[in-house]
């Protein structure tokens, strides 16, 4: 802790915290999802679709996907930082993952608001 160079860097606390907050959101959603699933009148494609079309469920599901993408960003970045040492390769890998996840977020929004 003594030899830190404090030049505007944060020390990963924000990401560490985001990882846990998004994990909690996803865990709560998972329980909410399972309860909703058991409350379905019948298990059919129509009932499944109607479940996600409901206002709150649609919003909660979108939040779940967003939490998942943020969570994946921190997790995959951690893996890359452990195993990919050349800075250039790491930068490219991080960029690819970041843009992929942003694209996925758009995809998830498109799926849910088409319902």
């Amino acid at each position: 802790m003594q030899n830190r160079i404090v030049v505007g860097a944060h020390y990963g606390l924000r990401d560490w915290l985001a990882q846990r907050v998004t994990a909690t959101v996803m865990a709560l959603y998972t329980v909410f999802f399972v309860v909703n699933l058991f409350c379905l009148p019948e298990f059919s494609a129509e009932a499944w679709r109607a479940m996600f079309a409901g206002g709150f469920m649609r919003f909660a599901t979108f939040l779940f996907w967003l939490a998942l993408f943020f969570h994946a960003w921190v997790g995959v970045r951690d893996i890359f930082m452990d195993y990919i040492k050349p800075v250039g390769v790491r930068l490219i890998a991080h960029s690819v993952v970041a843009f992929l996840l942003i694209g996925y977020a758009g995809w998830a929004a498109q799926i849910l608001w088409r319902l």
């Binding site: 494609a45 994946a72 893996i79 996925y104 799926i111």
Partner: peptide, 25 residues
């Protein structure tokens, strides 16, 4: 770590399946 990496890699498949499951007949 392994399960997280696997889930991340399969995200396009999972999103496609989810999108199809709530799509039309």
């Amino acid at each position: 770590r392994v399960s997280g990496a696997g889930l991340f890699l399969m995200l396009p498949v999972l999103l496609w399946l989810f999108g199809s499951s709530v799509g039309g007949p």
